[in-house]
Design a protein around this nucleic acid. Structure first.
Lengths: 191, 191
DNA sequence: GCCAAAACGGATGACTCATCCGTTTCACTG
DNA sequence: CAGTGAAACGGATGAGTCATCCGTTTTGGC
């Protein structure tokens, strides 16, 4: 779904381009706008018109995943044990980063090409803050960890799993979960 | 120090090129062999002759730092409380990664351009194994963490500190230490 | 059906990269 | 110390990538 309403042909091309982008991300191929154009059977200019930079396309590809994460966080806030809630959400976030390769770079980028993506990240940060506050209020988490640490830490977990010489996506997800477990153990305050 | 003994002019140029490489790394500028040539007042071909790829130059720049780390680990093994020894070494490794930007990418690369660098990484892995074994034998560390986890985890810590929107190198080092503290708390088995 | 606006596409110039080869420097020998 | 072959030098250049520009086509309201 493009930002503004698009003409029929434009919408069709937009879709095609995003589909190619998604495919490239899944293959782990870096996004090159010229190649995207060829693969989408579309003129180069069309790609550049919709997505001025590779990052813009990447962020568009990442958007559904980010929205899912935000929705998950909002659901999580509606109740339950603070620690379990936080932990489950973090596991979901780690999984998302491994499963969908477009998410990590968007998280790690200090500034985003798409305003909407920036807003999503902002919302996520706020939600992280609330989840943390709950946990802190319940006295189950190290008071030294702040809202601003959460995205970096999650990026670190995903990155660590990427560096580990695991073979498949399945293994990498398992590794990420294991590393997240270590981290959570370190963040938790024990009785 | 190049691998093979070099002619005087070749040695001079090699040095110049590495110096430029070091400067670029410190500035955070990506290494482009053509620019390196210009900055070192040397022909492009000379650069390519000594360093076929940017990675090769990067690894050469990283070598002293890696050797220092290996030396540190060897010293650490000569005695002391297993937990303290392991912890201190990990803090040194984290610091090195933040201080010297050439180290992280070399760690994270699955395969290295320079055989010597590959060997250094291998030695480091072995030393990590020994430090871990000591800690495990003393019962102070989670038995689920293996030698193969250490480099990825350290990369994760450094990466997380990089993602955190800190301003200076000083702050980033502090953030890395804080994150490493969390991680260590998670790896440690408590009485 | 007609027209203006919107979108299209690919040819093209700017830029980057890495090789090749004619020239220069070095170090060893007599 | 002059001569010589090997080693190293450097920059011109061809291949390849990137992103813009503009003449043509498509769309959708009147």
């Amino acid at each position: 779904m493009p930002a503004a309403p698009l003409r029929k042909d434009a919408a069709r091309n937009w879709q095609r381009i995003v589909e190619v982008g998604r495919r490239l991300v899944d293959e782990g191929t870096p996004i090159q706008l010229n190649d995207v154009a060829r693969a989408a059977s579309v003129g180069v200019a069309t790609v550049y018109r919709h997505f001025p930079t590779p990052e813009a396309l990447l962020e568009t590809v990442a958007t559904p995943g980010l929205e899912a994460l935000v929705a998950h966080a909002e659901r999580a806030l509606s109740g339950g044990d603070p620690w379990t809630t936080l932990r489950d959400f973090l596991f979901a976030a780690a999984d998302a980063q491994i499963t969908d390769a477009s998410i990590s770079p968007v998280f790690a980028a200090p500034v985003n090409a798409l305003p909407h993506v920036g807003e999503l990240k902002e919302r996520l940060a706020v939600l992280f803050g609330k989840l943390l506050d709950q946990a802190r209020a319940a006295g189950v988490i190290d008071p030294g960890v702040t809202q601003a640490d959460m995205v970096p830490l999650m990026c670190g977990v995903a990155f660590a799993a990427t560096v580990h010489p695991a073979t498949g996506t399945e293994d990498r997800a398992a590794t990420a979960r294991r590393y997240l477990t270590f981290l959570l153990e370190g963040l938790r305050t024990r009785a």
